[in-house]
Amino acid sequence: MRAFFTAFLFLLSAVGASAFEANAAAKPTIVLVHGAFAESSSWNSVIERLSGQGFHVVAAGNPLRGVKTDAAAISALARSIPGDVILVGHSYGGPVITEAANDAPNVKSLVYVAGFAPDTGESANVLAQKFPGSTLGKALQPVALQGGGQDLYIRPDVFHEQFAADLPAAEAALMAATQRPVTLAALSEAAGAPAWKRLPSYMIYGSADRNIPAAVMKFMAARAHAKKTVVIDGASHAVMASHPEEVAAFIAGAASAR
């Protein structure tokens, strides 16, 4: 009798594991790519919500050194994941996923969260200035790099206003302290062939973004023929942290679209 129950419990466990694996396989893996002046934990609240819906989520570490080299790192990560992948890019993470998808055939769609979607030859700096409204330039603190070039930070005293105005001051202060710098060269690097010309793209952004003006996001969404575009009224550049519910729902919708 004991042997029977042991075998029965093993069978139930195996069936449960198979069902779980089948459910996981039915959903694409969501790879979140942070941008400049942020880091992977900026997605924490979004990850919590997506994971609760049964998605496997990876918050990638974006090197922030250059579009092509950063894209190569994200592309390698995407290729290592079994099954379909949705790439999500915030800010400078946008150019990175736009490039990375070209070398990762399992990427099925792109989601831009207040992220640049450059065309061939465009850089983040060029796009940011396409329409008036960005105040990022005067908020930057350059740091000279050994061997040449510059790292760029947002000055801590203006980080809250510039990057995350709709977050509590204490939370913005933590983000300012943990921000990761991007090289000036990365923001100036011209993009290659844009994956959004062949993959479904989705865009969500805030109307009060001081890094990438809403007019720039609207232009890029129209040019990419975005499948869906959502504007969150009053949201800052840190929209994934200030409005995680809306951002997670938007990503989940893109990931579930067929």
Rank of each mutant, 00 (worst) to 15 (best):
P142I: 03
L199S: 03
E171W: 09
R155S: 12
F219G: 14
L167T: 02
H225Y: 11
V230D: 12
A191Y: 11
V239M: 01
A215C: 01
A144N: 13
L152R: 03
A172L: 10
V158N: 04
A186W: 08
D166C: 01
P194C: 10
D209C: 00
H243P: 11
D209H: 00
S207F: 01
F219W: 14
M240H: 06
R180V: 10
W196H: 13
D233M: 02
E171Y: 07
R210P: 15
A190S: 10
A169M: 14
S242R: 01
A172K: 08
H225L: 10
W196T: 10
P194V: 06
I204G: 06
V231Q: 14
A190C: 09
Q150S: 11
R223C: 03
K228D: 07
M203R: 12
I212T: 02
H237D: 00
P194Q: 09
T183A: 03
S201T: 05
G192W: 09
Y153G: 06
R155P: 15
A191F: 08
M217L: 13
S242K: 00
T178H: 15
G206S: 03
Y205R: 07
S236H: 00
P156K: 04
I212A: 01
G148W: 14
A222S: 12
V216I: 05
P213G: 01
P200C: 09
M240A: 01
G192H: 05
A185I: 09
V239Y: 10
S188T: 10
A222P: 15
G234A: 01
A235L: 02
V182K: 13
M217Y: 14
R155K: 07
S188L: 11
Y202T: 06
Q141C: 09
S207P: 08
A144W: 14
G206Q: 00
A238C: 09
Q150N: 09
A170G: 10
G148H: 10
S242F: 00
A238E: 04
A191S: 13
Y205L: 12
D233W: 06
V230E: 10
A214T: 02
Y205F: 14
R198A: 02
K218A: 06
L152T: 05
L167A: 02
G206H: 01
P244C: 01
V231G: 15
E171R: 11
V230K: 08
P244A: 01
K218M: 06
E171C: 12
T229R: 05
L174D: 15
V239T: 00
A193F: 14
L145S: 07
L152G: 09
L140T: 00
K227Y: 12
H160K: 06
G149Y: 02
V143Q: 15
A173E: 12
A190I: 09
G192Q: 03
D209F: 01
Q179M: 02
P156W: 03
P213E: 00
D151Y: 13
R223Q: 11
A190W: 10
K218V: 06
R180P: 15
A238G: 10
V216T: 06
A222G: 11
A169G: 13
P168I: 04
A195M: 04
L184H: 13
A190M: 07
P142D: 08
H243V: 01
Q146S: 15
G192V: 02
A173C: 12
A226W: 08
A185F: 11
L152V: 07
V230C: 07
T229E: 11
G147S: 02
V143I: 14
